[in-house]
Design a protein around this nucleic acid. Structure first.
Lengths: 135, 135
DNA sequence: CCGGATCCGGCTAGATACTG
DNA sequence: CAGTATCTAGCCGGATCCGG
């Protein structure tokens, strides 16, 4: 079983403050992950089948989608249900825990959509100042 | 100028839907970034000097801190002010745009702190079910 | 003290091919 | 269709040295 999250790498065990911190950093990686945020967004409205997800999220590879879903399932954020239909089909949906994540992440998405233009122009200005000659 | 964000890799230019999407994905990486989230948190209370940041955030390397700060400065989220003191000193603070990010990210941090235990036990359960023999 | 540049090992994630 | 396994290139990030 390769490729599951890799969990605990802390070699020399550390005092509780540090391991507490480690755990938070780990969760930041999970929750802040690009695909996690997008995935929670597409699952927010109810159960969705695998290929629908694949279609809805542009630019995610098969491999990344599967492994992100596994990770979220492991963390108790999504639930997986295999339907016994003729062409095999699988549905994913948010658990209650996962649904409680919608609010916070939706805030972040709203912020991004609202400030997208602003940030892009800030980048242009910054790049121009840093490299006036190249413009 | 190595190592700045790398901005635009899209070779064959794409229709506006796709480039729009690309831009959002990019911002997700910036905003969802572990160090970004922690950094906005420590800058939330006002201007902070470089070494204070370094001390406050455990486990960040010099290189990552500098490059994250550069990226955030480029995006107009933090402002950098070099003080003309004897041992040179630099302060960073959130721009108005950066301050508007505090709310959304604070929501995420609250969610993490609240559900940390829950997630860890979900992981244990999942791992036990997946590998009953190894337990 | 701040921060840029370089080197380099390890991990990430895409492509691909194979199972049920 | 859903999922797994293998191979591989490219990036990320830590260590380190230098220069302001």
């Amino acid at each position: 079983m390769p490729e599951l999250p890799a969990a605990a790498d802390q070699s020399h065990l550390e005092d509780s403050d540090h391991s507490q911190c480690q755990s938070i950093l780990q969760l930041l990686d999970r929750v802040g992950d690009k695909w996690t945020i997008l995935l929670v967004g597409t699952l927010a409205d109810g159960p969705v089948s695998y290929n629908t997800i694949m279609r809805d999220i542009g630019g995610v590879s098969h491999r990344m989608l599967i492994s992100t879903l596994r990770g979220l399932e492991r963390d108790g954020i999504v639930e997986r249900r295999a339907l016994a239909t003729a062409p095999s089909n699988v549905e994913y949906e948010l658990s209650p825990l996962g649904r409680s994540l919608i609010g916070p992440l939706e805030e972040v998405m709203k912020w991004i959509r609202k400030n997208q233009q602003l940030i892009e122009s800030a980048r242009s200005v910054f790049d121009a100042e840093a490299n006036p000659k190249l413009m």
